[in-house]
């Protein structure tokens, strides 16, 4: 059983100080990895300096949250948003918060569409296409549209899998 070498476990409260110390010593933030773990989360922060790696590990219990390290590493907001969206880890103090809408327009696994064609289409029409307008990340308190330039209209309800849009040709 191999465990990561150079890995220090800290408490979520002590994370910012530990990260700040590494930042002070010119360690580069490689990335963070979040693993759902015992109803909560285990988060690893990976750092590098001169081909050497070092890791910080925190364990966040269910209902807890991880502090954002954006104050020390500004570029961390992407990975923190990703952890928040894909693993459901609450991150507090995000500088740029996509509110769980960085990658997906659905909440969590129950919104993921599986199943045969017809169901998938109807699920998409019922949820995806219409809810696309609802995905509004907030940057500096300002709402930023993550939709498309040409706002997609919900398609005409169709009887077959191929939609009436095929015949309509133009935009509605």
């Amino acid at each position: 059983m191999s465990r990561l070498p150079d890995c220090t476990t800290v408490s979520p409260e002590g994370l910012l100080d530990a990260v700040g110390a590494l930042r002070h010593d010119d360690w580069r933030l490689v990335t963070a990895s979040c693993v759902p773990h015992r109803a909560g989360w285990m988060v690893l922060y990976h750092f590098e300096r001169g081909e050497r790696l070092q890791h910080l590990r925190i364990e966040v219990p269910a209902g807890g949250s991880a502090p954002s390290i954006g104050a020390h590493y500004g570029a961390a907001f992407l990975v923190e948003n990703e952890m928040a969206e894909l693993q459901g880890l609450p991150v507090s103090g995000l500088a740029i918060d996509y509110r769980g809408r960085l990658y997906r327009d659905f909440d969590g696994p129950e919104g993921w569409v599986h199943g045969p064609r017809g169901e998938a289409i109807s699920a998409l029409e019922a949820a995806g296409l219409t809810r696309l307008d609802a995905c509004v990340p907030v940057v500096d308190g300002r709402e930023v549209r993550a939709g498309t330039t040409r706002v997609p209209e919900p398609p005409e309800p169709s009887t077959n899998g191929h939609g009436a849009a095929g015949e309509a040709g133009g935009r509605p």
């Binding site: 059983m1 490689v30 990895s33 690893l44 990976h46 790696l53």
Partner: peptide
């Protein structure tokens, strides 16, 4: 397999990092 591992390679665009648990 058991354990956790990290692997890094220099992809054409830069460092590619894998963590496998």
């Amino acid at each position: 397999l058991h354990g956790e591992a990290i692997s890094r390679v220099e992809a054409p665009r830069g460092e590619l990092f894998y963590y496998v648990l």
